[in-house]
Design a binder for these strands. Sequence first.
DNA 1: TGGCATTTTGCAATCGATTGCAAAACAAAA
DNA 2: TTTTGTTTTGCAATCGATTGCAAAATGCCA
Lengths: 339, 339
Amino acid sequence: MKKKKLMTLSDISKISGVSESTVSRALSGSKLVSDKTRAKIQAIADEHNFTINAAARNLRLQKTKTVAVIILISSGNDQSVSDPFMLSLVGSIAEALGSKGYDMLLSTTRSAPQDWQRHYFDTRKADGLIIIGQGEDDAPLNVLVDSTYPFVTWGSTAKSYTGVGSDNRKGGYLATRHLIDQGCRRIGFFGKAHHAEIHERWQGYKQALEENEAAAMIDTTLDVPFTAQAGYKVAKQLINDNSFTYDGIVAASDMIAIGIIKALKESAINVPKDVAVVGFDDISLASMYHPSLTTVRQDTVHGGEMLVSKLLAKLNGEEVQSETLPTQLVIRQSTQRSK
Amino acid sequence: MKKKKLMTLSDISKISGVSESTVSRALSGSKLVSDKTRAKIQAIADEHNFTINAAARNLRLQKTKTVAVIILISSGNDQSVSDPFMLSLVGSIAEALGSKGYDMLLSTTRSAPQDWQRHYFDTRKADGLIIIGQGEDDAPLNVLVDSTYPFVTWGSTAKSYTGVGSDNRKGGYLATRHLIDQGCRRIGFFGKAHHAEIHERWQGYKQALEENEAAAMIDTTLDVPFTAQAGYKVAKQLINDNSFTYDGIVAASDMIAIGIIKALKESAINVPKDVAVVGFDDISLASMYHPSLTTVRQDTVHGGEMLVSKLLAKLNGEEVQSETLPTQLVIRQSTQRSK
DNA sequence: TGGCATTTTGCAATCGATTGCAAAACAAAA
DNA sequence: TTTTGTTTTGCAATCGATTGCAAAATGCCA
């Protein structure tokens, strides 16, 4: 019943009694072939379960209809692959690509070949690259800048290459401002401030603090990787050392916020009463945590679509600009001190 | 500075003054070429930044060194893409593939072409398929069974095709047994019992209840999709209807457990004192929730490696068996009623 | 039916790498 | 120097689909 062997254009051509050219044209919808012929060929192709061989087509057309997505992982930190935010973004990219008829090749800097920057494009495995997360270091990306390699990045948009990203500074500002409005006066920032995106959030935080200099603020910038575990550990440490003196915390991501809150709870420090905590990302879990998490929402769906459309435009030879997407403060329980 | 044009084998052959065959052999490490020649050619290739064209090679060799991973999503439920467990598994697969020199093509049933079952293989975009999550319905997979298509699945292993999965039944049993040991007497199961994997967990749950028939138990099987939101909603509803009478809950996944716990907390029902809750998966967040979640661990790292090695073995023409991985109960706060 | 315009179809080259087989180059032995 | 044996190298076919150009088929009108 099953065909063991896969059909080729040539097989179909023999069966239908027309040339390969005609089969090719019929199947690709060229108007150089009559409807009658096309119908006949299409029927035969369907019947024999024929599919075009992508390798051959790619070779001939010099393109693959495939985009490689690669997730940058800071070397030390092996958890950030599982950051729900990034994965949500990848999901959105996958869908946007799928709807345009593109396949997605996914890898992380850990699983990819050494020379991933060039690998996918040079080998013609993909037509372009989407790079997620600039990490703390521009070096790996600089290989690509001023080359003609088609790529776009997610992250900070204040770069020399095309990027899509959230308005991190505004987000950081809104989050901090909100804490101040809630009456917090000793506000700490938890996150790697030298990481491009986080740095922008930190700048927003800084700005909010400065605009309210009347109040005595604490600007403590702690170096915390992207995981709940890291947030937990740092907070725990501070508490144990009796140096936890905040009444408000801006966490660089929801996962970090969750870790911090857990540490606080374990020490019977109440959130939001004793300490108000605001996260960043609005991962789906944020509303399901207890207390539900006030956070700055990044729109992953829009972000994914944007990345894809920018890249495809680029593949199409168009000139493309970076784009900053709006962020939005979502107020939930973790900062409601008033009532 | 940059080469606009990508080099081909033929270019390198011209530059180095040897034939294409020799270049090909030199670069692929064939011992048919002398070390001296190889060194010379290698140097030239490096200098000109030459990379093999995958399309051409694929066409010639009839293989792609690429595996397609596809995530089955139940149509209605648009959240399960973001299920941390699946994503963790995908991460592990990505790494296992990377270490074997394979690339990973990722898609979900939402973003993939209609005929994804055949698409990736027929078009020769991938050498094989890894399918994650059987969903509630075997139909899409049956297209592949008894075909010669190389694929392996994650999920229930009691199927006619090669699968890798956790010992769900044992896991469900351990979880339920633990609740009984903790003194729970009204234990409910929250999860889609007609979903293949969940059904096995449910069987384990059932078995544990039956082995302890002396105690009065409640076997309520509620139909809950895979998200925290769903767990929350169902629990909330029960509470509002005054029909929440459990003192122990077996949730089919950690996310569901988290949603349930949130609903309980909002109604001032204490976990674990009033109700003990056990999850399934041991996602990284389980230990970071408050209370930390007792759960059944599935080993995603091992699982991913296993899926990959089975598939590659299959590609290699070997006969391959399904495999069930052990599950392990991880006891944390959400079930500690004793003290 | 013949002649011309318009559609359809087919030939053959091309994309870039691999490999069986045969020829060339080299080394060693006679 | 010739012969035999061993390495290296090159020729040419192959993988499957696409497409410019030319040839064939068809339609239309007189």
